[in-house]
Design a binder for these strands. Structure first.
Lengths: 126, 126
DNA sequence: TAACTGTATTAGTTATCTTAGTACAGTTAG
DNA sequence: CTAACTGTACTAAGATAACTAATACAGTTA
């Protein structure tokens, strides 16, 4: 389902949160479909169940999943989250523009880079 | 000279590195001009001198400053660093484009936002 | 010489991350 | 009903990173 990157310095539980939420945003994991159980995902990734549980608690707090005792965890309706993630991205653009101006990248140069990256990303399957 | 943001979750030494390097890139701190001494900056920020020293070690490692025993630390020639920071920014654009596509922001929408942010940043003095 | 500079070392605290083991509560297939 | 699965909760322990603290040494300068 996902793989861990041990070169990544971020905590494991955070990587799991990011990768799973990405799968949900992409629509690979659809609304109300079951998430892997805490124990099975832990076994698959060869990590402690507590670490996965921590990721699930975080995902539930953020609204990506809902959990039912005895039944399992399921993908929530994330349409609202997509919007807030959009706004977050706009804020990230602000930081990027600030840094670009700082290092002397002009508006037109930045836009050129954007177009280029979009092309590169075009055919990508991930 | 700089102020710390205690709501910022990043380590203090990293904040110092970022803020001081920004001042150098902006040209506020010019080449060969003296940096505040480890002890004086620590006093000014009410933190331990070792924390400031760690920032200075990092700044020296990155090439922003050079230190002379007994004399002090000084701003280095950072023209080369500006270039590498530019390349770093291009890499950041890649991440941004990836996230933008994920949350459904089109190329033209993103460019529109960029133009808008550039306008907002235009008159800014920081 | 006194008062600055950077540098080095050691130690202790605090917080975060991860693992481990155990236990309880609810669901479900056989 | 029961075995095997779910989520949830708790405590403990080890590792690591960030920060503080105290102290000392080395070089510069008014």
């Amino acid at each position: 389902m996902i793989t861990l990157d041990y070169r990544d310095k971020r905590p494991i539980y955070e990587q799991i949160v990011d990768k799973l939420s990405e799968l949900m945003v992409k629509g690979v994991l659809k609304q109300d479909s079951p998430m892997p159980s805490v124990r099975s995902l832990a076994a698959e990734l060869s990590i402690n169940p507590n670490t996965v549980q921590r990721s699930y608690i975080e995902l539930e707090r953020m609204g990506y999943i809902y959990s039912v005792r005895g039944k399992g965890s399921f993908v929530a309706d994330i349409s609202g989250i997509k919007n807030s993630r959009s706004k977050e991205t706009e804020r990230a653009v602000e930081e990027l523009v600030k840094e670009a101006k700082l290092v002397g990248i002009s508006e037109e140069e930045l836009i050129l880079i954007i177009r280029q990256k979009y092309e590169e990303e075009e055919g990508r399957r991930d």
